[in-house]
Design a protein around this nucleic acid. Structure first.
Lengths: 121, 121
DNA sequence: CCCCGTTATCTCCGTCGGGATATAACGGAA
DNA sequence: TTCCGTTATATCCCGACGGAGATAACGGGG
């Protein structure tokens, strides 16, 4: 279920050439915060651990401080969690997305009217 | 020329699953409007004609009316131009982008401060 | 001392997007 | 009738992306 929820606006913020923050990395951060594990977060998004781990590595290198702190072994058999910076980045991205959506509602509505998609409201 | 201009915010508006409007198609539309040719517009963006033509085909199928009108042969040896709908879509996309940028300036500035990128201002 | 689940790495491999290239069609001009 | 530049379409091919799977390391618990 979870309806198709169209139209949908996605944002990609390019920090430097080749380094950017988009919906995928943001969702992964959120998944890590909720599951406490890189592999679990990746699995939830149907992506391989290799890919999830690679994204985390990139994320940690994009900012001054790492966004994800991970540990191996121990009582909890290892895991991962967001750092303070990680939470801050995720929060800022979500707010950025929300602001962008509300600031473009009018244009989106007009664009949708030019499509042949029936306006179910 | 053209400075790096970072950070940069890009928008992708998904109309239906698999059909979306983003920076690439928008720039292509703009290029066609300015050059009067699909191949010239594609070349300007360093993309093959095949790809440019494919994007135009998709664009024309996304809305009720085609966005690009093309012709072969004749006095001008063929060419392409934006339809009224094409101009409208491009204009709406540009306005959407501008609104989104100004609505997220604060978050973008805060995110940049978390990077190790020197703030040249 | 072995067990466990996760992190961390590596290698192999299928898929897919898109470039490169070739060819035909078009239709007015010369 | 030939020439021209563009649209339109097909085929071949390569590199990158990412999945699948194997392996090791970790470190507290039983």
């Amino acid at each position: 279920m979870a309806g198709k929820d169209h139209p949908e606006l996605k944002l990609r913020l390019t920090l430097r050439g080749g380094e950017w923050l988009g919906p995928g990395k943001a969702d992964l951060l959120e998944g890590i915060a909720e599951t406490g594990s890189i592999s679990a977060a990746g699995k939830r998004m149907k992506m391989s651990y290799k890919r999830a781990w690679g994204l985390v590595e990139v994320l940690n290198g994009m900012f001054r401080e790492p966004l994800v702190a991970s540990s191996r072994g121990g009582a909890g058999h290892g895991g991962a969690e967001l750092t303070e910076t990680g939470h801050a980045v995720l929060r800022l991205y979500r707010r950025m997305q929300a602001n962008a959506v509300s600031a473009t509602e009018a244009e989106i509505a007009q664009l949708m009217q030019l499509t042949d998609i029936p306006d179910r409201k």
